[in-house]
Simulated scan of single mutants.
Amino acid sequence: MSRVALVTGGTRGIGEAICTALKDAGYTVVANYGGNDEAAKAFTERTGIPSFKFDVSDFEKTKDAIAQIESDYGPVDILINNAGITRDGTMHRMSFEQWDAVIQTNLASCFNTCRSVIDGMRGRGFGRIVNIGSVNGQAGQYGQVNYAAAKSGIHGFTKALALEGAAKGITVNAIAPGYVDTDMVRAVPEEVLKKIVATIPVGRLGKPEDIANAVMFLVGDEAGFMTGSTLSINGGQHMY
Rank of each mutant, 00 (worst) to 15 (best):
A166K: 11
A160M: 13
Y142K: 15
I170T: 07
F111L: 12
K151V: 05
K207N: 13
Q144V: 07
I175L: 07
L205F: 08
R128T: 07
T158E: 02
L163I: 13
Y142Q: 14
M121N: 02
E190C: 05
K151Q: 02
A160T: 15
I170Q: 06
R115V: 07
I170L: 09
G127K: 03
N213Q: 12
D210P: 00
G228T: 02
N234Y: 03
V145G: 14
I200F: 04
D183Q: 14
A167L: 13
E222T: 13
G140S: 11
I211C: 02
M226A: 15
A149Q: 10
T113M: 08
E191N: 14
G143R: 06
G206I: 05
N112F: 08
L161F: 14
F157P: 00
Y142M: 14
C114L: 15
E191V: 12
A160F: 07
G127C: 10
C110L: 13
E164A: 12
N234S: 10
R128P: 02
S134A: 11
E222W: 07
Y147G: 01
G133K: 00
K194N: 12
M226G: 06
A198G: 11
G165C: 09
K194V: 12
G120K: 04
L205D: 04
P208V: 04
P177I: 08
K194M: 09
L231K: 00
K195E: 15
V219W: 03
M216P: 01
R124Y: 12
F157D: 03
A162G: 12
A162N: 07
F157H: 02
A148Y: 01
I233H: 00
G235R: 03
N173S: 08
G156S: 14
I233N: 00
A174C: 12
M121H: 01
G206K: 01
A187L: 13
G137I: 02
A223D: 10
G165Y: 05
I233L: 13
L205Q: 03
R115Y: 13
K151S: 04
N136Q: 14
K159Y: 03
M121P: 01
V185E: 10
G178M: 01
V180A: 08
F126W: 15
V145P: 11
